[in-house]
């Protein structure tokens, strides 16, 4: 009988001698079986904070309503990572996800949402479940707009958005609380369109873009303040479980 785990447990993975946090839900299920197991690639920067609670509720539901184990790492330079974001490039995130897989896997499936989807589809050939994907470069544009708005309110900047983004790609710099390295900005700008065959794409009902499935919920990632939608987390868990065991 599977042990019921109420909340994901905090674990770690190590990358280049840095310990990074990784949440694990349903760890006992994974140890005792060869069943499906899910790697969650978090969204980037402030979206990771806004969607943290949703993902934790999703992991709990997945473990204890559907008996599926999952792991949610902090990407280096985001969330509780001790590494300064200014040091991080895309290869660090790829290496992080490889290390999580080595230390907490193997995984049979990958799930991501928003700006994490672009990172997720570069890491392996496993089937992927994506919710409301946002091109990572568009995400940086939002951060740049936010930065510009605060600079203008402070009476400082007369830079244009494109000038600011070009400057970040050339020299790196601060965007809305994150110091982005020039290599990371350049890599995010050049990311290829996500077009893999093995992606199951999910959107919120009301979004008129094409998708394989639509779920009802709140676009928490668009809000300026973090919030929660437990029913949406449950709906995500139900759909992911069906997709993983289909």
């Amino acid at each position: 009988m599977a042990t019921v785990i109420q909340h994901p447990e905090t674990s770690q993975y190590s990358l280049n001698e840095h310990a990074e946090r990784c949440l694990i839900a349903g760890g006992d299920i994974a140890k005792g079986s060869q069943g499906p197991s899910l790697l969650i690639v978090p969204p980037l920067f402030e979206e990771a904070n806004k969607l943290r609670r949703l993902l934790v509720q999703f992991m709990s539901a997945l473990a204890h309503k559907h008996d599926i184990a999952s792991a949610l790492p902090d990407l280096p330079g985001t969330l509780e990572s001790e590494r300064p974001s200014s040091e991080i490039s895309l290869s660090d995130w790829h290496a992080a996800l490889e290390q999580v897989t080595e230390q907490h896997g193997p995984f049979t499936h990958v799930m991501s949402l928003r700006s994490g989807c672009d990172i997720a589809c570069q890491i392996n050939d496993l089937p992927q479940w994506h919710l409301a994907p946002l091109n990572a470069w568009r995400h940086l544009r939002t951060l740049a707009r936010t930065q510009l708005a605060s600079e203008r309110e402070a009476g400082g900047s007369s830079r244009s958005l494109d000038d600011m983004l070009n400057d970040i790609v050339q020299n790196g710099g601060d965007l809305a609380g994150y110091t982005i390295s020039a290599p990371l900005a350049a890599e995010l700008k050049e990311l290829p369109e996500t077009s893999a065959q093995n992606i199951y794409q999910v959107r919120l009902s009301g979004d008129d873009k094409a998708a394989d499935h639509y779920i009802t919920g709140t676009p928490l990632w668009l809000r300026t303040e973090p919030s929660e939608d437990h029913d949406m987390a449950l709906a995500m868990a139900t759909d992911v479980a069906q997709w993983m065991t289909a």
Partner: peptide, 16 residues
């Protein structure tokens, strides 16, 4: 609708 929300609105308009 503050200036932060304006940034989010513009990006969402672009995306949608």
């Amino acid at each position: 609708l503050d200036s932060m929300a304006v940034a989010g609105l513009l990006t969402e308009i672009e995306d949608r």
